[in-house]
Simulated scan of single mutants.
Amino acid sequence: MSSKSPAGTDQNAVPEAPAPAQEEPRSLRIEDWLTVIVMAALALITFANVLVRYFTNSSFAWTEEISVFLMIVLALVAGSAAVGRDRHIRIEFFCEAGSAARRRRLAQLGALMVALLFALIAVLSIRTLYDDFRFEETSPGIGVPQWWYTMWLPILSVAISMRAIGLFIRRTRQPDAEYLKDGTAEGPANARDKQP
């Protein structure tokens, strides 16, 4: 006769151990700190603009332009961190089904496709950067050279592409048996759900 708790669960059952954390590059601290800095800058700029608008009935002309630029940088930096941590969007029905070898191959394919996409974005945005520089385009809000903003798209796209290549290399070196043990074996979402 097993002892049951009032809720009807077995008290002698051993809780499942949480899935080990995925291997994560230490250099992701760069993206983490850039995210903090950009978010702080956005908050300060917006707060300063609200104060000026409240007390003077006018606003800083440059805040919207800088805020839009910082939000784009924030999205790309966060995208780089997501790729480095293997947290990019995927369809779990396909990626979490099948053998460990199949899962690993799909993870490798996903990493390669992300690397290819952002390498292509980097190449195409270099052309835009060159055009902005060559034609001396200026920003609409404050009139600074447009290439000051445009140059960050190829830089951050290359960073995301490099993170994806790093993820591909980590997945290639990881044996199938280890792939079953890490958080991706049952899917990050499922592994988190099973933790007490």
Rank of each mutant, 00 (worst) to 15 (best):
S5D: 14
V68Y: 10
L51P: 15
P25S: 04
I30G: 06
Y54V: 08
A81S: 07
V52T: 13
E92Y: 09
W62Y: 08
V14E: 08
F69I: 04
R87Q: 12
Y130N: 07
V114Q: 02
A19Y: 09
R127G: 08
R29Y: 15
F55M: 09
V144C: 05
T9C: 14
L76E: 00
V123P: 12
R127V: 14
F47H: 08
I91V: 10
L120S: 09
Q11H: 15
L124K: 10
G79C: 11
A40D: 05
R87W: 05
M113H: 05
L117K: 11
E64T: 15
E137F: 05
R85S: 01
P20S: 11
R105H: 09
F94T: 04
I30T: 05
R104Q: 09
P15Q: 12
N49R: 03
P25Q: 06
G143V: 15
G98H: 04
A119R: 03
S67M: 08
T63Q: 09
I91Y: 11
F55T: 12
L28W: 03
A40N: 13
M113P: 10
L109P: 11
F47P: 01
A107T: 07
R29I: 15
V73L: 11
V38I: 11
A115F: 01
V73S: 07
D32K: 09
M151G: 03
P15Y: 05
A40Q: 09
A61Y: 08
S139Y: 11
S67Q: 05
V50D: 08
